[in-house]
């Protein structure tokens, strides 16, 4: 647990790593907005190709970015099935007669049980789900209509459903890839420094971005420590018989309390030590600070900024033009 990696940062080379974090943050935000301005499937496909090209140019492993997409799998499947089942516009692409009968229902039950049994292999969760889905489809569609039949219907897919779902999925892919590239190539500390610099104008509103950035840096540094402590406490309570996954709500709450109290106590001790260390080094909040590495805006940043402006302007033009 000691050397746990926080965030998704992976050390590497390539021009994304040389960029000023400020440029990267602003560019990613503007490019995301630009992607949301696009309206046709052709436009988002070109945008996806450009994104992939840039990632290859920046020598970022596509596989790593794809890993960032995993939590969205459910959302993607949901969107896809929703569009395909409910969208009834455009030309009809597929009409498959389906019959729900006794035998097909039993067969579906069998493969569902099989699927749930195999679900322990978490690595193949997605593939298994797709396999199950196609199995259900095949059973309903192709099992001979023998035995009692309850319902016969046509499974239909319309053009607009397919187009919209591909459009939505491609757009989501680009947006996630963009934010993954940002967190993949920028250390959290650099991101913080970039944010601090970008938030400096807020000083007029009474928000001290210097102090805030310092707090964020401290937090980032302490995340592994706190995670480590939480793990220790969990093990300690488990060795006393606590079970964090079972039980009714009241028991769960009790277990959470038994976790949180020691966590708070440890956290307060840590913060006490930290405050003592800072005070003994004569730290005064709100005073200007110096750094080892200053942010610098270089030629690569200029190129990126120009690229972003062109893409953003292009997206607006495409949206406004009929």
């Amino acid at each position: 647990m000691k050397n746990i990696v926080i965030g998704q940062y992976v050390p590497g080379k390539g021009f994304f790593y040389r960029l000023d974090p400020r440029t990267k943050i602003i560019a990613v935000v503007f490019l995301m907005v630009a992607v949301f301005l696009l309206e046709s499937i052709l436009q988002v496909s070109i945008a996806l190709l450009v994104t992939l090209f840039l990632m290859i140019l920046g020598r970022i492993s596509i596989g790593r970015v794809a890993k960032g997409l995993r939590p969205l799998f459910v959302l993607l499947v949901f969107t896809f099935s929703f569009q395909i089942f409910l969208n009834r516009e455009g030309a009809r692409l597929l009409a498959q007669p389906m019959n729900i009968g006794l035998y097909s229902l039993l067969a579906v039950l069998v493969i569902t049980v099989l699927w749930r049994l195999l679900a322990r292999f978490k690595k193949f969760k997605g593939a298994l789900f797709l396999l199950w889905l196609s199995g259900v489809y095949a059973l309903f569609a192709f099992l001979p209509a023998a035995g009692p039949i309850y319902k016969v219907f046509d499974f239909e897919i319309y053009e607009s459903g397919v187009v919209t779902s591909i459009f939505v999925v491609v757009r989501l892919l680009i947006v996630i890839s963009l934010s993954t590239v940002l967190t993949l190539t920028t250390k959290p500390t650099d991101l913080t420094q970039g944010l601090e610099s970008l938030l400096r104008p807020l000083k007029r509103l009474g928000v001290n971005s210097d102090d805030f950035a310092l707090i964020i840096s401290i937090s980032l540094r302490y995340i592994p420590t706190i995670l480590d402590e939480a793990n220790k406490i969990m093990l300690a309570q488990a060795s006393r018989g606590a079970d964090f996954n079972e039980g009714k709500l009241v028991e769960k709450v009790k277990q959470i309390v038994s976790l949180l109290i020691p966590m708070f106590i440890i956290a307060f001790k840590r913060s006490e030590d930290l405050a003592d260390a800072m005070e003994s080094r004569n730290f005064v909040p709100g005073k200007p600070r110096t750094r080892i590495h200053d942010l610098s805006f270089g030629a690569t940043d200029l190129v990126t900024a120009i690229f972003t402006v062109i893409v953003f302007a292009g997206a607006i033009v495409l949206r406004v033009l009929p």
Binding site: I215, I218, I226, M263, F268, R270, S271, A275, M278, G286
Partner: peptide, 19 residues
């Protein structure tokens, strides 16, 4: 609660919340 102690507490509690 001195400003430094306030800062450290806020930082650590924020970390806890994030964890």
């Amino acid at each position: 609660t001195t400003p430094v102690r306030w800062l450290a507490l806020v930082a650590i509690l924020g970390t806890m919340a994030a964890v």
